[in-house]
Amino acid sequence: MKRYRNLSGHSGVTAYQCGDGFIRVRFVNGDTYEYTDQVPGPEHVRNLCFCAEAGEGLATYISRFVRDAYARKLD
């Protein structure tokens, strides 16, 4: 996983991994969630990867648009 740049300095995200049709996001509490083209859908996965690569807005996007719509919890 790549370290999340956290440009705002206040994110609840520490790391992420973008792949073909998925993104995995690790939060400060250690939980890791996978979001896929199936759940919550390809548009959200693209937007989540965009935020992750930009280093800002990832946790906000998750809380506003996908909330508990994740494919699975890892770990």
Rank of each mutant, 00 (worst) to 15 (best):
K2G: 00
R3N: 14
R3T: 11
R3W: 01
Y4C: 12
Y4N: 09
R5W: 00
R5E: 07
R5M: 04
N6C: 15
N6W: 09
N6A: 15
L7V: 14
L7P: 04
S8Q: 02
S8M: 02
G9D: 08
G9P: 10
G9A: 08
S11M: 02
S11W: 03
G12A: 11
G12P: 00
V13G: 02
V13M: 04
V13R: 00
T14W: 08
A15S: 15
A15G: 15
A15I: 07
Y16C: 02
Y16T: 05
Q17G: 07
C18D: 11
C18E: 12
G19W: 06
D20W: 03
D20F: 10
F22V: 12
F22W: 06
F22S: 01
R24E: 14
V25F: 11
V25L: 09
R26Q: 06
R26H: 09
F27A: 05
V28G: 10
V28D: 15
N29P: 07
G30W: 05
G30T: 03
D31Q: 08
T32A: 07
T32L: 13
T32S: 05
Y33M: 10
Y33W: 13
E34L: 13
Y35H: 05
T36E: 05
T36M: 02
D37P: 05
D37Y: 06
D37N: 15
Q38L: 08
Q38F: 06
V39M: 04
V39F: 01
P40G: 03
P40M: 15
G41D: 03
G41V: 02
G41W: 06
G41Q: 09
P42D: 09
E43D: 15
H44S: 14
H44F: 11
V45A: 03
V45K: 01
R46H: 13
N47C: 10
L48W: 08
L48S: 03
L48C: 07
F50A: 09
F50Y: 14
C51A: 15
C51Q: 07
C51R: 15
C51F: 13
A54E: 14
G55T: 08
G55N: 14
E56A: 08
G57P: 12
G57L: 14
G57A: 09
L58E: 04
A59G: 13
A59V: 12
A59F: 10
Y61N: 07
Y61A: 10
Y61P: 03
Y61G: 06
I62F: 05
I62G: 01
S63Q: 11
R64I: 04
R64H: 04
F65H: 11
V66H: 01
R67Y: 13
R67D: 03
D68I: 03
A69K: 10
Y70A: 09
A71Q: 00
A71G: 00
A71N: 00
A71L: 00
R72Q: 13
R72F: 02
R72W: 07
K73D: 00
K73Y: 00
K73W: 02
